[in-house]
Simulated scan of single mutants.
Amino acid sequence: MTSYDLSGRKALVTGAAQGLGAGMASALAAAGAAVAVADINDELGHETVEKLRSGGATAEFVHLDVRDDAGWESATASVVAAFGGLDIVVNNAGIEVTDLLIDFDAEAASTLLSVNVLGTALGIKHSFRTMRPGGSAGAGGSVVNIASVAATIAFPGIALYSASKSGIDRLTRVAAAESGKLGYGVRVNCIYPGLTPTAMGNKLAVETAALGLFESPEAAAGAVAELTPLGRLGQVDDMADAVVFLSSDAAKFITGAGLPVDGGMGM
């Protein structure tokens, strides 16, 4: 029977200085992986690394703007040099902009699409280059992209964010097909997290209420819970556990899949 043991694996998680990313990094480390915390926030990133190390994990910080092609090349090379390989990449880094379509700012939308879609695409690119046969790691591996329940439902106020997360879903499936067809040995999957009360999730509740879509942030969160068959918001460990599963040998015959971790909200 297979397990979720990741002992000996080497992982890189983007946007891992805080929120969902930090939770995913912690869960991967608890399963036995060495973890590189990649983020643009150096201070919080180093704090997260110290927390992981204090729990006995092997962890390093890597400064990375996921929109930077050369930055990705440097980051993956640094992880391989530090850990002796790279087996798992979690493309978690992302931003959210709340606005009505009639009012959205083109510059803010361009930044969102660049971080969420281009950043994920570059993560896939450099994961493949590193993990495929002949790459600096060269033993195959797993890529887990973080989409959102927003890719599967029509929630007002987040049209551009929803579009970006739908794009991540399509990137995942095409990447899985290319990896399989070209013999890279890299599985590529994504998860669709439900609303989680992280800083980003709380910001969404506040901003949708400010747009007049809900009476208050509490009402916004309550509306999401009412739309969720399990009757609650998601928790960081719900999402982190799904990432560990998809990174493990328990998912060794799963690729090109989108796993809802949303309490049934998107069904």
Rank of each mutant, 00 (worst) to 15 (best):
Q235M: 11
P217D: 04
L211V: 08
C190T: 15
K181T: 15
R173W: 05
T228F: 00
G201Q: 02
L233N: 04
F245D: 03
V174Y: 12
K181N: 13
G194I: 01
L195F: 09
A240R: 02
T208S: 09
G201V: 00
S179I: 07
L195R: 01
G185F: 07
G222E: 14
P193V: 03
L211K: 06
N189R: 02
E178G: 06
N202S: 12
R187V: 08
A223I: 05
V236Q: 00
R232S: 08
P193I: 00
V174I: 14
T228C: 08
A219E: 14
A240E: 02
L227E: 11
A225M: 12
S216W: 04
E218H: 08
G180Y: 11
A220K: 10
P197Q: 07
A210Q: 13
M239P: 02
M200A: 13
T196M: 04
N189S: 11
A175L: 06
T198R: 00
V186Y: 03
M239Q: 14
G180T: 12
F245C: 08
D238P: 04
V224G: 03
G234C: 11
L195P: 01
T198F: 00
A175P: 03
G212H: 10
A176D: 08
Y192N: 15
L171N: 05
L211G: 05
A175K: 02
R173N: 10
V224I: 13
P229T: 03
G180L: 13
Y184T: 11
P193K: 02
E178K: 08
L204C: 06
V186K: 00
L230K: 13
R232D: 09
R170T: 14
F214R: 12
L230Q: 14
S216V: 05
A240P: 04
V186L: 08
M200G: 04
T196A: 08
D238Q: 03
G185Q: 03
G185M: 05
V206W: 01
V243H: 02
P229E: 04
M200W: 04
V243K: 00
C190D: 14
R232N: 10
E215P: 05
A223Q: 09
M200D: 01
L182D: 15
T196W: 00
R232C: 04
G234A: 12
C190F: 06
G180A: 15
G234D: 05
V188R: 00
L204N: 05
G183H: 11
L230V: 14
G222V: 08
E207M: 08
V188K: 01
E215M: 04
K203N: 15
G231L: 07
P193E: 03
V244N: 05
D241C: 10
E226N: 13
V174F: 12
L213N: 09
L227M: 15
E178C: 09
V236C: 03
A177M: 14
E207A: 12
A223Y: 08
A225T: 09
G234N: 10
R170I: 13
R232F: 06
V236L: 02
E226R: 15
R170G: 11
Y184L: 11
F214Y: 15
R187H: 10
G212V: 10
R232G: 08
